[in-house]
Simulated scan of single mutants.
Amino acid sequence: MTQPTNFRYFIVTFSAISAGIIAGLITKGLFDVDLNDLNAICHLILKSIIIGIIVGAVLGLLNIYFKFEPFRKTRTKDL
């Protein structure tokens, strides 16, 4: 089994965190924004994407340093 590279540590964290934050911010914002105002909806979506990418990048870079792998396969004992 090969060792994961730094890029793998970054991309796993970046994709999971970014997708979750973007979806969460858009969902939360849709309750607060006037749904008839297209400009407000576009601003909300753009703001959510930018915040999600920045937070995902920062946490991805931190994960390169700490090397936390959330999907590590563990060996189970067969009975």
Rank of each mutant, 00 (worst) to 15 (best):
T74F: 08
E69Q: 13
S15E: 13
Y9S: 07
V33D: 00
Y9N: 04
T76K: 13
E69P: 03
F71R: 07
Q3G: 11
I11M: 08
Y9C: 03
D37F: 05
A57M: 04
V55G: 04
K67L: 05
V58K: 06
T5A: 13
G20V: 11
K47L: 09
T13R: 02
V33W: 06
I49T: 03
K28H: 15
A40I: 03
L61N: 05
G60R: 06
N36V: 03
R8I: 08
E69C: 08
F14T: 05
Y65H: 04
D37N: 10
L62Y: 11
E69K: 07
L25T: 11
D78S: 12
L35K: 04
I26H: 07
I26L: 12
T5E: 10
L61Q: 07
R8V: 09
R8Q: 14
D32K: 00
N63S: 04
I45E: 04
L79K: 10
I45R: 07
R72W: 12
Y65L: 08
R8D: 10
A40M: 07
G60W: 03
D34F: 04
T13D: 00
G52M: 01
A19T: 14
I11K: 03
T27M: 13
E69N: 15
I50W: 07
S18K: 01
R75S: 12
I50L: 12
L30D: 10
I11S: 09
N63T: 06
I50D: 02
Y9L: 10
T13N: 08
R72Q: 15
S48Q: 07
F31Y: 05
T76I: 14
S48I: 05
A23L: 10
Y65E: 01
I45K: 02
A16T: 13
G20K: 12
A57W: 05
H43L: 09
K67T: 04
